[in-house]
Simulated scan of single mutants.
Amino acid sequence: MPRRRIGFWYRFAAVICKPPLVLLLKRDWRGMENIPAEGGFITAVNHNSHIDPFAYAHFQYNTGRVPRFLAKSELFKKGFVGAAMRGTGQIPVYRESTDALSAFRAAIEAVERGECVAFYPEGTLTRDPDGWPMTGKTGAARVALQTRCPVIPIAQWGANELLPPYSKKPRIFPRKTHHVLAGPPVDLERFYDREMTPELLKEATEAIMAAITRQLEEIRGEKAPDTPYDPRRERIEQRRKTRAQALREGIQDDDRAAAQEEGLGK
């Protein structure tokens, strides 16, 4: 299937975005040979800075296979931003949809048209204290198993040093390096021809996240934690601690009340 032309809007966005990216970030980009030359595919990318979508898009643009990001549908309705989102072929996600597969139908259609669809499987900036990928959401795995397209794991590092997670103040000096390593397609064949249960999607997602993490280990020259940070598990643990604290405070209040009553009774 022939690749889609980049088009005016993507080239216009590149003219605006590339100069400041080139100025602010040196580049160490590897693995471009793993980006398919033809046909639809998914890239699954880690997320550790508010500016890394731009830095990653720069890498992807230079491969000749521009990414189509998933974005909330409201952005497609707002003036110049909406026109740019539509013109660059980004994919609206309708959050009001109650059917999980319907929310990604446009992504499936884009892959089947031969597009590159970019997923941030974590769904948000990583909350891992050391910047490692968290557990992922199942959207990328769902689209991959539905279409049986290649899933290219991509790790990036460096944009987070320019603009740390949840920070509004960039650290411009010294000039940072944006490292990108694109790996070979994730082997998902063992998940084909099986019922798409939550357990299957979770297992396929873990395979995708493990591949991204291996790429990031190579970039950083470090070993990632054996267990990825899980924000859901963290929330559960925090609620448990809050309940335990409330229980302890309740017991202490009861003890104080009992002591006061005993004092009054003497």
Rank of each mutant, 00 (worst) to 15 (best):
A55R: 07
W132H: 06
E199F: 05
W9A: 08
K78P: 05
K169I: 14
H58F: 11
Q156Y: 08
K77G: 07
H58Q: 11
I236H: 03
R239W: 12
E189D: 05
P198T: 01
G7F: 08
I108H: 08
H47V: 00
V15M: 13
E237G: 02
L21M: 15
R232N: 12
L70E: 05
D99K: 04
P150V: 09
H50R: 06
G39K: 07
E109I: 01
V81F: 07
Y10L: 07
D99Q: 06
R232Y: 15
N46L: 10
T177D: 13
H178E: 10
S167T: 02
E33W: 09
A140N: 11
P53N: 09
R27V: 00
L101R: 07
E96Q: 14
A259I: 09
C149E: 07
T63S: 08
G39T: 08
R113L: 12
I208W: 03
A257N: 09
A204K: 06
G139A: 14
M196A: 00
A207Q: 03
A44M: 09
L25Q: 00
R194I: 11
T126A: 06
R233D: 13
Q146V: 13
R214F: 01
L216Q: 02
R233I: 08
L70H: 03
R194E: 15
D226T: 12
P165N: 08
A207F: 03
R233F: 04
D253N: 15
T43S: 11
H179E: 05
I108D: 04
K266R: 12
T124S: 11
E222Q: 13
R233P: 06
P92I: 03
R142F: 11
E249N: 14
D130P: 12
V143H: 04
I35N: 13
P198Q: 01
D230F: 04
F41W: 12
V186A: 08
Y56S: 15
F59R: 12
Q260Y: 15
L201Q: 06
F119L: 04
V180H: 01
F76W: 13
R194M: 14
I154F: 14
L181R: 14
H50K: 04
E203W: 10
T205V: 10
R86K: 15
F12A: 09
D187R: 07
I16M: 13
T147V: 03
P198W: 00
A141S: 12
A211E: 10
E203Q: 09
T213S: 04
G158M: 04
A107S: 07
T124G: 09
T213Y: 05
T63D: 06
K202I: 00
K223D: 01
E234F: 02
W157L: 03
I236V: 05
G136L: 15
